[in-house]
């Protein structure tokens, strides 16, 4: 699905990430941890083509991102659902329309989608807030809306950046269950998080690999978690 080979990245100063290799195979479940500022968000951005590596190779579904034009990147986003750390929405449209935005943008908005949308919103517990505008949402509600938006296209890969950062334990369990369920349906999942408790809870449900960024490199975290 997504492959990184000897990737290095720098924002202009020193290298933030170097000599980093990673393969997200179909149906795999990965966690990504590391101290704040280690480059988790940066790594995710490399994975969905928002950043291009300063050296090395990133392949999205088999094609090298350095050879993909803007439209090719845009089209690949329809196969990768992303939950951003700073969930951004179209602030003038209600939550329901924001969640359905990937469908509208892909020209796949169909009359029958309302039922799916309602179900999805119920799943993330936003039924009552469907007509609210994004600025009126709480931090946790924004993250749940972002997760719903990330999965509405039923993408092959879901990348989630701190998806449980602002929600209580119970809600984070629910979000995790949703992601685990998606993984059981064959989706590839990568979650960046600080929350070790969440990782432990996930390990009880799926076979998850834990990756850690330290000293600019990617390491597989031990079983001691």
């Amino acid at each position: 699905m997504i492959e990184l080979e000897n990737v290095a990245y720098s924002y202009g100063g020193g290298e933030l990430l170097s000599d980093l290799s990673l393969q997200l195979g179909a149906g795999s479940f990965h966690f990504l941890t590391g101290p704040s500022g280690a480059g988790k968000t940066t790594l995710l951005k490399l994975c969905y083509g928002a950043l291009r590596p300063t050296s090395g190779q990133v392949r999205l579904f088999g094609s090298d991102v350095t050879h993909m034009d803007r439209d090719a990147i845009a089209l690949s986003r329809r196969r990768v659902g992303v939950v951003h750390q700073d969930c951004q929405f179209l602030d003038h449209l209600p939550v329901a329309e924001n969640v359905a935005l990937p469908l509208a943008v892909a020209g796949q908005a169909v009359p029958g989608q309302d039922e799916n949308l309602r179900e999805l919103l119920a799943w993330v517990g936003l039924t009552g807030r469907a007509m609210a505008l994004p600025p009126e949402l709480s931090g946790g509600e924004r993250q749940r809306a972002a997760l719903a938006r990330a999965v509405i296209m039923s993408p092959e890969v879901v990348l989630a950046d701190e998806p449980t950062g602002n929600v209580d334990w119970e809600m984070s369990q629910r979000l995790l269950t949703l992601l685990v369920e998606l993984n059981r349906m064959g989706k590839t999942i990568l979650i960046a998080t600080h929350d070790l408790q969440l990782i432990r809870a996930a390990k009880a449900q799926v076979q998850a690999r834990v990756l850690r960024i330290s000293n600019r490199r990617l390491q597989t975290a031990g079983a001691d978690l």
Binding site: R70, A74, L75, R77, Q88, L90, L101, P102, V105, R149
Partner: peptide, 16 residues
């Protein structure tokens, strides 16, 4: 600019 960024993140092409 923010609208454009959001559209791009959810897979909108430049033409759209």
């Amino acid at each position: 600019a923010q609208v454009i960024a959001v559209l791009r993140l959810v897979g909108a092409t430049d033409i759209y």
